[in-house]
């Protein structure tokens, strides 16, 4: 089996998975009570059955389920996710405008949680009885048990209200003008609290797992070999131990990636971050079916891509998963 073959099989799997997600999403939303006709009727201050039926016919919601599903799938295959009832613009445009903000939040939080988690884990595995190690354990217990929205609110109160270090909400300061760097710095400034809130729980997870994994690896025979070679401590720990210890952390990070994405919904709502999360929240309240389906589609796409990246990372770290042609 060569690399290309493996890659094609993985892509095929991903496509099948995405298709199933599409059908399931549509089914679930279809089964949920309430549709856009209810929302419109509500905003009109009420409507009789005839008007409701008219609205449903207008949005073609009175077709049989299978007809609607086929039409939807056909549209998606033409990269058309439909038109938002609520925002009155194509869903794809709507999502693509919001996606970068979410990706920025999710990827930064995940990378930060991984980097810091692994560093803390490695450190405390080397001095498992040190005071700093106990501190890390306590901290990760806190991060592990505190819900993301609560951590977010605490951070807001502490670092935005009491100590006005960071902005309360949003992603950019609309009054600011300046070059690319000024704006990038402004976004980074706005990002600090949401990223901290979102990464706290995953940082806790990754640091605990890295610690356990490192402690196990440091006991293995090949670490003794590395020491017998006369290598320095840094080489033994970071070259020989870490590369072996990082595998379970990658697995967990891959599994947790979807949790990071769904955590982003909560964090975005708390910090009014203009991403997919707030969009999803508003779309659900407005029964804006095309937008909800579009967001679900994109989040599953993000998770699937995340899983493919996890796989690639595993191959990179562990030669046993690579096959020679």
């Amino acid at each position: 089996m060569n690399h290309l073959g493996t890659f094609l099989i993985r892509m095929g799997n991903a496509a099948v998975l995405l298709g199933s997600v599409l059908v399931l999403n549509f089914l679930l939303i279809h089964m949920a009570p309430g549709d856009v006709a209810d929302t419109i009727a509500q905003s009109m201050g009420g409507a009789d059955a005839e008007v409701m039926a008219q609205i449903r016919a207008e949005y073609r919601l009175d077709d049989p389920f299978l007809v609607q599903l086929t039409r939807y799938i056909g549209n998606v295959l033409r990269f058309d996710l439909g038109h938002s009832y609520f925002y009155n613009e194509p869903v794809t445009d709507l999502i693509l405008r919001r996606l970068p903000a979410t990706l920025l939040l999710v990827v930064t939080a995940q990378v930060l949680a991984l980097l810091v988690g692994i560093i803390l884990g490695v450190y405390s595995s080397r001095n498992p009885r040190g005071i700093f190690s106990h501190l890390i354990t306590a901290l990760s217990l806190f991060g592990f048990s505190a819900p993301v929205f609560w951590t977010g609110l605490l951070l807001l109160i502490a670092l935005s209200l009491r100590l006005p270090l960071f902005p309360v909400a949003g992603m950019v300061d609309p009054t600011l003008d300046g070059g690319v760097w000024v704006r990038a710095l402004d976004i980074a400034h706005h990002m600090v609290l949401p990223v901290l809130a979102l990464s706290s729980i995953f940082l806790a997870l990754y640091s605990r797992l890295s610690r356990a994994s490192m402690m196990e690896v440091l006991e293995s025979d090949y670490i003794r070999t590395a020491e017998a070679k006369g290598l320095g401590n840094t080489k033994v720990v970071y070259k020989h131990a870490l590369k072996n210890a990082v595998s379970p952390v990658i697995t967990l990070a891959g599994l947790q990636f979807s949790a990071v994405v769904s955590g982003a919904v909560v964090v975005e709502t708390v910090f009014s971050w203009p991403g997919l999360g707030t969009l999803a929240f508003e779309a659900i309240l407005a029964r804006d079916t095309p937008t909800i389906l579009g967001i679900l589609f994109f989040s599953s796409l993000v998770v699937i891509v995340g899983n493919l990246l996890t796989d690639a990372a595993h191959r990179l770290v562990d030669p046993r998963l690579r096959r020679r042609g």
Binding site: S220, D221, T225, A228, G230, L231, N244, D318, P319
Partner: peptide
Amino acid sequence: RSIRGNEIGMIFQEPMTSLNPV
């Protein structure tokens, strides 16, 4: 450290696990 692996070498019992797999 500069003596280990340089002036004194060592072979271990378990060849299956004594080499780093990665």
